[in-house]
Nucleic acid binder design. Structure first.
Length: 214
DNA sequence: CCAGACGTTGTT
DNA sequence: GTCTGG
DNA sequence: CCAGACGTTGTT
DNA sequence: GTCTGG
């Protein structure tokens, strides 16, 4: 699963190779604690790639209202090509969600302990789909089963796309929607500050307090 | 035919 | 829009 | 995803 | 329990 994203990529600092030469949306701001319903920075297009902000939670074109979005923040890799909510986007509206990390929560009884996952110590891309609903552009993040590292916290994880597959994915071609290799990822526990989506900034990825009382 | 759903995850 | 259930 | 609200009426 | 806001 994937329900909170760290997207602090800052154009003032180092821009990853796959974003070189692309113009960032004027409204883009780096985020340490980006939640569903908020604008995600994503890459789309084939001949002409562009960076856009897409509201997280895919609303199919046929939806009567926005309510479906709360349960379409993720799409299962094994069914995404055929489910009514996603298949049109799967055919022709692919995107790559830019991320510096993503959070997962370990449930320990009543407490929810946040962990931050990173890939190769640099920004990466998640397989996504987007859709237009009235004037609104929305997106979803595809999930698959967890690799060993992810399974320590949860049984699902987002599909992290190998850079070699970026073009194929955006072009609408089939690519393997499989768990990313554990040995290229890192995970660490972070502060409970990230639990509340109103909190923003580097505190969200700080180490957790050592006592139970943070 | 029309009406109604269409999604994910976790928890029970 | 398209499929399923009735 | 998690946290927090979840109701009505009338009055300020 | 379920929905909304962030």
């Amino acid at each position: 699963m994937c329900g909170r994203i760290n997207q602090k990529t800052n154009l003032r600092l180092e821009v990853p190779d796959f974003l070189q030469g692309l113009e960032f949306p004027a409204e883009y701001v780096p985020r340490y604690n980006l939640a569903p319903s908020q604008p995600l920075l994503a890459l789309r297009g084939t001949d002409q790639r562009e960076l856009v902000l897409l509201r997280w939670g895919l609303i199919p074109a046929w939806a009567k209202d926005e309510k479906i979005a709360y349960s379409t923040i993720n799409a299962r890799a094994d069914t995404v090509a055929t489910k009514p909510a996603f298949r049109a986007a799967y055919k022709s509206r692919r995107c790559l969600v830019v991320a510096d990390g993503y959070y997962e929560w370990l449930r320990q009884g009543k407490s929810k302990l946040p962990y931050l996952y990173n890939v190769d110590d640099r920004p990466f891309c998640l397989a996504g789909l987007w859709e237009r609903w009235h004037e609104l552009e929305t997106c979803t993040v595809i999930t698959t089963e967890a690799n060993d590292l992810a399974a320590a916290v949860h049984d699902r994880m987002p599909v992290i796309v190998d850079p070699a597959d970026y073009s194929a994915w955006l072009a609408g071609e089939p690519i393997p929607l499989v768990p990313f290799p554990s040995d290229r990822m890192k995970v660490r526990p972070v502060s409970l500050v990230v639990n509340n989506a109103r909190n923003e900034g580097p505190q969200c990825e700080a180490p957790p307090a050592t006592t139970l009382f943070e």
